[in-house]
Design a protein around this nucleic acid. Structure first.
Length: 554
DNA sequence: TACTACCGAAGCGGTCAGCC
DNA sequence: GGCTGACCGCTTCGGTAGTA
């Protein structure tokens, strides 16, 4: 653009060259009437957002004038937009009529008389001219005319009058999306699932789309398309791929048919150049495994039951045997892995809570305590009440009190407790399988009777012998002596005889066995313990013993 | 077997431009 | 201003194929 000639002057010359004298006059008048381009700014000096070209209604004559002037400055008015059915003459005629209206105070009817057309036609031609100029305007110019706007009903009606092939209004049947009621998914579950990708199309297609969306390609309105419509289309598309909803459901949400929703998805893929590159098919195998928690609201239901204090088994029993229960078990496992606190106890914790609370009462008589202990059944009950600290197993109690006893001697202690009047609970548990298959018995007392029971047992002369550790260290550096339990359970302790079997020295060769024992004891390099007639070593010394035998004996 | 997606064809209603 | 035809967005319908 020549600095000597402004855009309005260029337009004027252009119009004169084309023989359009009225048009040239309009350009001249515009140049005289208006100064610099004015762009509406917000309070902070930024360009006001949310403008839609339709708001360039003739009723906003001031805005339209500034817009037209800005377009002319950029010479955008010199090129006829490529619009179907728009002739050059009609385009110029529209611009001239628009110019006449903007620079004069004449009513549309008067202008119509000048141009020998009806007022309605004047209005119609001017509206179209504005839109043609809008299409020709650069994004920078358009950006300057972004205005906040709340269209009135009448303006909405005006807004819907558009040119064919440009940016057609939404179809009258296109309603605002009616989103289904929010899923009643439990808030805690919702939070836990926040990182899960709930897309339902093939992972490879999902990945392609993710990349495209991350680049923002979908945010650009394709050429020749109504931005509003494009937004609607990509929303439909997005809702489809990001939800479990089928086409029919998507259609209901957006007030269109399922078929139209399908067609819309096709259009979006076409506009994004994705035909035949990705598949929008939804298959169960594409669903994330967490779908189990969302499907039929199973996860939320379970989380609610967890909040009520139910254990895993109790929740499981709420579902009828069959596929439902299997799903519930899977869901429980999944929720546990996700960090939900799920108790494994089977019986009613409420019932045991009641017993636990009563057992804590200091004023409870021994008879009342015995009644409560008798109400505790099975290993699960023991587990719950032990965990809550109101009962203690006799075995744990004896070990903590410093007694040493082989398992088969425990009966002495049970008898002694009964004799001392200490309430003693007994319950039976059946182990279905495994090495402990069969009946097992649990003996327990109230935790608050611990000191009283300890005093009674330690004062019992028949039990005095169990206060001394029968395990003795007979050789080696002084080490903490393992108790009978560790020896019986082989917990970090092994018999010397078993350590010698790898050298083919067995009980059958007693002389050799004794010789090795004597050598080890004499060397006194390794701690050796004796319980009854058997010698033991610490498991951690096993290698040392082997080395000793290899170097000194074998 | 029921459901869903897909496809093609036909038709409807609205918009628009041109013509008379 | 009314009529007409083209175009567009959308729905409906019938048939087919794939899948749970």
């Amino acid at each position: 653009m020549s600095p000597e000639k402004g855009p309005l002057q260029l337009w004027e010359e252009n119009q004169r060259q084309m023989g359009n004298i009225p048009g040239a006059e309009i350009a001249r008048t515009l140049r005289e009437q208006f100064g610099d381009v004015w762009a509406p700014l917000d309070s902070e000096g930024g360009v006001k957002p949310d403008f839609e070209p339709e708001m360039l209604s003739l009723r906003r004559k001031d805005v339209v004038s500034r817009f037209v002037k800005a377009v002319i400055q950029k010479e955008a008015h010199l090129v006829k937009p490529s619009i179907y059915g728009l002739s050059l003459e009609r385009w110029i005629r529209g611009k001239n009529i628009l110019g006449s209206y903007l620079i004069s105070s004449a009513k549309q009817e008067k202008i119509g008389q000048v141009y020998k057309i009806a007022q309605a036609n004047v209005s119609f031609l001017m509206r179209n001219s504005i839109r043609y100029l809008w299409l020709s305007a650069s994004p920078v110019v358009k950006e300057h005319f972004l205005l906040p706007h709340k269209p009135s009903g009448r303006e909405i009606k005006i807004k819907q009058v558009k040119k064919k092939g440009l940016s057609r209004p939404l179809h009258p049947s296109s309603k605002q999306p009616v989103l289904p009621p929010e899923s009643p998914i439990h808030p805690k579950l919702k939070e836990a699932l926040s990182g899960v990708n709930f897309t339902f199309i093939a992972p490879e297609s999902r990945e392609v789309l993710r990349q495209v969306f991350s680049e923002g390609a979908h945010l650009l309105t394709p050429p020749g398309m109504n931005p509003e419509r494009w937004t609607l289309y990509r929303n439909i598309f997005g809702t489809f791929i990001l939800s479990k909803a089928k086409l029919g459901q998507i259609g209901k949400i957006y007030g269109i048919s399922g078929e139209r929703a399908r067609q819309t998805n096709e259009i979006v893929l076409e506009k994004l150049n994705f035909q035949n590159k990705i598949s929008l098919k939804k298959k169960p195998q594409y669903r994330p495994k967490e779908w189990l928690l969302v499907k039929d609201n199973l996860g939320s239901e379970i989380v609610e039951l967890l909040e009520q204090g139910l254990s895993a088994d109790q929740i499981k029993s709420r579902f009828e045997i069959g596929p439902k229960r299997i799903q519930a078990v899977k869901a429980l496992k999944m929720l546990r892995e996700m960090g939900f606190n799920i108790k494994r106890v089977k019986d009613s914790p409420g019932e045991y809570l009641r017993i636990a609370q009563k057992l804590m009462r200091e004023d409870l008589t021994d008879e009342e305590t015995q009644v409560l202990l008798d109400q505790i059944n099975g290993a699960r009950g023991i587990e719950v009440l032990r965990a809550s600290g109101v009962i203690i197993s006799v075995r744990d109690f004896l070990l903590s009190a410093g007694f040493h006893f082989p398992l088969f001697k425990q009966q002495h202690f049970y008898d002694a407790l009964i004799d001392a009047g200490i309430p003693l609970g007994i319950t039976e548990s059946i182990v279905q399988s495994g090495p402990q298959k069969g009946k097992r018995y649990y003996f327990f007392i109230a935790a608050r009777h611990k000191k009283r029971a300890e005093k009674a047992l330690k004062e019992n002369p028949d039990l005095e012998r169990f206060l001394e550790n029968p395990v003795k260290q007979i050789s080696g550096p002084k080490t903490e002596i393992p108790n009978t339990t560790k020896i019986q359970k082989k917990n970090g302790v092994v018999s010397l005889a078993s350590a010698l079997t790898e050298f083919n020295i067995s009980y059958k060769n007693r002389l050799k066995l004794q010789a090795i024992k004597d050598a080890l004891i004499k060397a006194s390099e390794i701690p050796i313990f004796q319980y009854d007639t058997t010698c033991y070593i610490l498991e951690s010394d096993l290698e040392n013993v082997r080395a000793f035998i290899k170097s000194r004996v074998v």
